[in-house]
């Protein structure tokens, strides 16, 4: 097990370096000189040159890349061009809000997704099944920003039940979590339903029923346990897509998390900040996938770690 973990972590390193390279390359070839943008139009050309030199922006691409990599390995992602603060500080300041949002959205996804998947499976091909599946399909299909604005309009503006934006109270997390979690809930519901239906066809379910067990015990105690294996892994993987969805959700609900940082960095062409945020998120996703893989192999002994 330990060997497997070490191997997976080691494999992650070239993946991460590859990602850093691609991001670095892409952000360097997009048009637009960040220095001119940052310094404003009043600035004198020689000051711009001095700044480029100080920031090492005059070096060849590959030199810049290795310098960046060297510093990044030491946790130094550089200084934000616009906000003039350490990128790592900005990331760690914003990260807790994103974690809160992602986890609460994940809770919503699980709490809605799993039960509706079960109910849909048990009541297969009934109106209830169709209803639940339509509901989850809506979640998958609706863009986060649209659903977000709609909910704000109804629950905050029209009904006045919840604050339009914010992140300091638990009430303000209700709408963003639902908006963000809904899409994942759909995926989880569908996966739970199809797995459960698959498992329900097995001999041991028939045996359980033959023993005279109650239907609830058969479904929850026997079938669900087995059906949940892929769902659990899916949930871990979904955390990474929630991180992606958080970008829009944070912007709409005024949550000062990583997504907001990334969006404003794009608008400002704040390369160090954008690079830092993307790389940090990549690390989270790699870690999420690693956990998913480990869980899978632990939960299902048929899958060998090697």
């Amino acid at each position: 097990m330990a060997k497997y973990i070490i191997k997976r972590v080691l494999i992650s390193i070239p993946v991460l370096i590859g990602v850093v390279f691609v991001i670095f390359f892409m952000l360097n070839v997009v048009p637009g000189d960040p220095v001119t943008l940052m310094m404003g139009e009043h600035i004198k050309p020689d000051l711009i040159e001095a700044f480029r030199e100080r920031m090492g922006l005059d070096d060849p691409f590959i030199v810049q890349f290795f310098n960046y990599l060297k510093n990044a390995l030491q946790g130094d992602f550089g200084m934000s061009y616009k906000l003039k603060r350490e990128v790592s500080d900005l990331i760690f300041q914003a990260f807790p809000q994103t974690v809160k949002l992602t986890l609460s959205a994940a809770m919503v996804a699980w709490l809605i997704g799993i039960p509706s998947g079960i109910i849909a499976a048990v009541k297969q091909n009934t109106l209830i099944d169709r209803g639940f599946m339509t509901f989850s399909l809506m979640g998958v299909s609706m863009p986060v920003f649209w659903a977000g604005l709609l909910m704000q309009y109804v629950f905050a503006y029209k009904l006045g039940w919840l604050p339009v934006t914010g992140y300091k109270t638990w009430q303000s997390f209700i709408m963003p979590s639902i908006v963000l979690g809904w899409s994942s809930a759909g995926t989880i519901a569908r996966l739970t339903r199809s797995n459960l239906l698959e498992i329900m066809k097995n001999d041991f379910i028939r045996t359980a029923r033959a023993k005279g067990l109650r239907e609830t015990t058969v479904v929850v105690g026997h079938a669900l346990k087995n059906a949940m294996l892929p769902v659990v892994t899916m949930m871990a993987i979904q955390v990474s897509s929630l991180l992606g969805g958080a970008v829009m959700t944070e912007s709409i609900f005024g949550i000062p998390g990583l997504g907001r940082v990334a969006v404003s960095a794009i608008g400002d062409r704040d390369m160090p900040l954008l690079q830092g945020t993307i790389i940090f998120t990549t690390m989270l996703i790699i870690a999420g996938n690693l956990i998913a893989d480990l869980m899978y192999s632990v939960l299902d002994p048929r899958i060998r770690c090697e």
Binding site: L149, V164, S251, R260, S264
Partner: peptide, 8 residues
């Protein structure tokens, strides 16, 4: 308050 979206 920084609100990224004008509709919001």
């Amino acid at each position: 308050k920084t609100v990224a979206d004008a509709d919001t």
